[in-house]
Write a protein that binds this DNA or RNA. Structure first.
Lengths: 134, 134
DNA sequence: CTGCATGCAAAGGGTTTGCACCGGC
DNA sequence: GCCGGTGCAAACCCTTTGCATGCAG
């Protein structure tokens, strides 16, 4: 556990926003100005593979990282791209949703909701859209 | 509807495999040797935005394209990366799964299952793993 | 001393874009 | 001729990687 890895983990835990690697990099750089983006990627990867954090590979957008290692689901705002945790009604095994699995052995499911966040629902200046958010 | 766009659409419809853009490119190139990858991307994008086909932005992998414009769900093999359509038990609105939406207005959900495909379940030479497939 | 993690920069893969050209109208 | 769509290549973004250096144990 180097000082870089420590700061990266702290920064991630201090943030609720599921930051991207370069967001983590920008924040950690305030305290460790000589840290490199490569180091951030390497440490995020290492932390994820040891189960301390979670990689979020979401549909069609840049990868994000989650301080919480346990799997859970997310909502993404289709206007501004904001990403938040979401709470589902039940925690049924994905198998229970499947009628015909085409012979696959189902291990897991990735469920991402799309919607409009509270801020974007309010009237106001239009948020610049990004095709990735659809 | 240029000849290029026609061939791209035909090739996609002839394929069940949800090909990537470069796979479409390789296949169409057999009949139109001078077609460029840029043209393939532009036409896939155009076809998708006019609703003739569907872009699949899946979690953590290269984008794929689906000849079927209607939304449906998929299974991805975590070993070989194969992607197939899947049939769910019901067609409940995603809202019904959500207990706390954090103020979001839920519009849609992207649901992707992960599993092992029939081929990869059989004993045999191990399929080279790709970290993207997890 | 040894070795692993770092900083740096370059490479890599997938996708988008600028631009000149072409071909149909 | 006009104009949109093309081919080509370069640019782009995110991510990974090779390498020499440096710090920790």
């Amino acid at each position: 556990m180097t000082i870089q890895r420590r700061m990266i983990l702290d920064e991630l835990r201090a943030s609720r926003s599921h930051p991207t690697a370069d967001e983590v990099y920008e924040r950690v750089k305030r305290k460790l100005p000589r840290i490199s983006l490569g180091t951030v990627y390497r440490n995020l990867e290492a932390l994820a593979s040891q189960g301390a954090i979670q990689r979020l590979d979401l549909a069609g957008v840049q990868r994000r990282f989650d301080h919480a290692p346990a799997p859970h689901h997310h909502v993404r705002c289709v206007r501004c791209g904001a990403l938040e945790d979401i709470i589902l009604r039940g925690s049924a095994h994905p198998d229970q949703l499947v009628q015909d699995a085409r012979g696959f052995e189902i291990l897991d499911a990735k469920l991402e909701f799309l919607g409009i966040c509270p801020e974007c629902r309010e009237p106001g200046p239009p948020v610049p859209r990004n095709s990735h958010f659809h």
